[in-house]
Nucleic acid binder design. Sequence first.
DNA 1: CCCCGGGTTTCCGCCCACCGGAAGCCGCGT
DNA 2: ACGCGGCTTCCGGTGGGCGGAAACCCGGGG
Lengths: 251, 251
Amino acid sequence: MVRDGRIRDGAGAACAVRVQRGRPELALTELSRRAGLPLTTTHRIVGELAGWGALERADDGRYRVGLRLWEVGALAPRGLGLRESAMPFLEDLYAVTKQNVQLAVLDGTEVVYLERLSGRGAVNVITRVGGRLPLHATGVGLVLLAHAGPDLQERVLAGPLRRYTPKTLCAPDELRRTLAEVRRTGVAVSDGQIELIALSVAAPVRGARGEVVAALSVVVPAETSDARAYVPVVRAAARGISRVLGAPDSR
Amino acid sequence: MVRDGRIRDGAGAACAVRVQRGRPELALTELSRRAGLPLTTTHRIVGELAGWGALERADDGRYRVGLRLWEVGALAPRGLGLRESAMPFLEDLYAVTKQNVQLAVLDGTEVVYLERLSGRGAVNVITRVGGRLPLHATGVGLVLLAHAGPDLQERVLAGPLRRYTPKTLCAPDELRRTLAEVRRTGVAVSDGQIELIALSVAAPVRGARGEVVAALSVVVPAETSDARAYVPVVRAAARGISRVLGAPDSR
DNA sequence: CCCCGGGTTTCCGCCCACCGGAAGCCGCGT
DNA sequence: ACGCGGCTTCCGGTGGGCGGAAACCCGGGG
């Protein structure tokens, strides 16, 4: 895959091309530069990928991620599969609260957001479907970490813990106490730990064998005084999804 | 890619492995068989893909589509990008109708479903996020076909037109008239053409330069007597999305 | 206990498909 | 006309992927 420190093939190149914010189309030269591959090589690889549909050409000749790739991604059980089961409950939760409703799973040492329903009036937060954030600073992250294996917990607590706001919990012992609290109460409250304007209430979603497979949260404005009032509805929605996942769904 | 009729590489193998209905995890041997590749080769390729996160191993050692792949797919502008812009309008439409709400785009000679909000009470139809259906039999398909280039229209009308139900329109001239009607009225109504129990009302979503980039539909039970009543709301939602896409969204 | 069989993993030498330099093409601005 | 930056085509040398062989792992049955 990687040889003498240089990236040599398609998969590696894909790795190297980091997420594009803003205009999501890239020219060939740009791709070549970012991937660190010769222009000719990039041209060939990109051509093959486009032939298969993994990339598409925009009207101006630039390349963008293709619909085929989206389609294949849609087959991921932990992606759209989970989302599919959870959706009715997310809709209900959104209908009741009219706030941001988020569904996320654990991957490596981060959370990946699977879904986000955000009403017009809700707080505008940085999370994005398909986006990643660290475990220690988000409501869903704390829930997932609290129920993860001790090895992962230690790895996260040992690693560098980025401080997003003055309220971000970064001290390992403080985090340990919080995690114990999350396990005890079954919910996590992250108040301004990622963005000062937002507060999230999160609860675990469990799979068929009772293991935590995802986390659900509602994000409300930080100044909400009765944030605890959201705990029952979030918990109920999470339970609802867990029940659906538990039933092996005859189809 | 393909040499002397045999599939030789990862991309080709991925092509060959068709969508799994039911259990979405496959054993190594199964993959090898489906891809038509030697066991050893499959083992190596799958190992690399898993190392990168494109595949994941389930608890029992089987392989499934990984979260990384889902994540990359989420970057497709015509996938989640479009969906992101459309979501608030889909939610509104769902809130008003409490029926299935669908968003789809054109790819090749088929429609690909990007999103589907389905309430508990709504008709249970076969469409699935990430799924494909032919153009001639669905409401969204008729809308997309009606506004596509004449070359594509001819190709579709010439090709075999599968009959899903007795009501499916398969005669080319009849379809041509329908398409003209869709262009004139700006909406398509597909009554029991894909499943007898369902009727859908669809409208076009336009991009920044007025070109049709997607289609939106509401699916109601076939026995609904006042199906035409849904036309204004669907049209309004489609217009709303078009307006958002037209504004180049300063961010 | 040992053996058997199906699935999985490791090892390694041969060969061909991928790499990437060179050259040609296209379209724009001067 | 000419230069230039970006894209595409061509093709020969070679190193990385291919896949046969063999080892490994594990549950079941004699």
